[in-house]
Simulated assay, not measured.
Amino acid sequence: MKVLAIGNIVKPITDEQRAQVMPQEVPATLKLYLDARIEQFWFRTDKPGVVFLMNVDSIEQAKASVEALPLTAGGFIQYELMPLGPLAPLGMLLQAR
């Protein structure tokens, strides 16, 4: 299943904290990408945060994956998880034939 994980910074991170956390965050995120749990990722341009398009078995797996990331575990970022599916109303166009 596809899940859109929208990350919002909820606690400012100091330069010192960033220096401690990011060397762990980047490899942990890369591992999720290499394990094919994160299919695509972006940096938000409207405010600090990230967006992941995830390929997971369940919403619970997506939640466990992002909650294990160091920035999330440290309370700096929270994710809104949105399950995605096919655009079902398009099926009505096929039925109309």
Rank of each mutant, 00 (worst) to 15 (best):
M1T: 09
M1E: 06
L4M: 15
V10L: 06
K11Y: 04
R18T: 07
R18Q: 11
A19G: 08
A19R: 09
Q20F: 04
V21P: 00
V21M: 07
P23W: 02
P23L: 04
Q24F: 04
Q24G: 00
V26E: 14
V26I: 15
P27N: 06
T29D: 02
K31Q: 14
L32I: 02
L34W: 07
R37Y: 04
W42A: 08
R44V: 12
T45H: 08
T45K: 09
D46H: 09
K47H: 15
V50D: 05
F52R: 01
F52A: 03
L53S: 08
L53V: 11
L53E: 09
M54E: 02
M54T: 03
Q61G: 01
Q61W: 00
A64V: 01
A64L: 05
A64R: 04
S65K: 00
V66Y: 00
A68W: 01
P70W: 01
P70S: 05
T72Y: 00
A73P: 04
G74K: 04
I77E: 09
E80S: 13
M82K: 11
P83E: 06
G85F: 05
P86I: 13
L87K: 10
A88L: 12
A88F: 10
L90G: 12
L90D: 10
L90W: 10
M92S: 13
L93N: 10
L93H: 10
L93D: 08
Q95N: 12
A96G: 07
A96K: 14
